[in-house]
Amino acid sequence: MAITLTINRKKVSLDIDPNTPLLWALRDHVGLLGTKYGCGIAQCGACTVWVNGEATRSCVLPISAVANAQITTIEGLDPAGNHPVQQAWDELDVPQCGYCQAGQIMTAAALLKKNPKPTKQDVVDGMAGNICRCGTYHRIQEAVLLASKKTKK
């Protein structure tokens, strides 16, 4: 039985093992490679996508659990890269290797949706679940605050 879900505003039908984690469905079956594998056990946040608007770890989430859900990946946030978080990431030159940044950006954008005017501490706490091995943490935090300023009220 195929599972149907909406990915980046497009309906997608997946006729694969329903236990397949969303991460691998996206990467190997849908061809969306922006969402990254880092640990496979929901510890690093590199695989963060939105499920019905909530930041979610896709590496431990079977597609059977997201039937009919709305999925947003880094490719769907704003393909032109004009989302305030994407702009802030570029302006403050956040990425070093860049591998974890899709997950960081999806986490940050979800945080700002819920809390458009976060304090510094809100940002520090809200982003603590995402590992960056290059240590771009300062600029990640600054960029979330910059994106908050850019976001129209």
Binding site: D28, G31, L32, L33, G34, T35, K36, Y37, T73, I74, E75, L77, D78, P79, A80, G81, V85, Q86, W89, D90, E91, D93, V94, P95, G98, Y99, Q101, A102, I105
Partner: peptide
Amino acid sequence: RVRGVDNRSIVTGKPVFGLDIRKPGMVF
């Protein structure tokens, strides 16, 4: 201060890393 030349690719999720390589007939 010069921004990283790949910043735009990274923030839009372009497939630029090793694990993103896909070639015709490729297996895992």
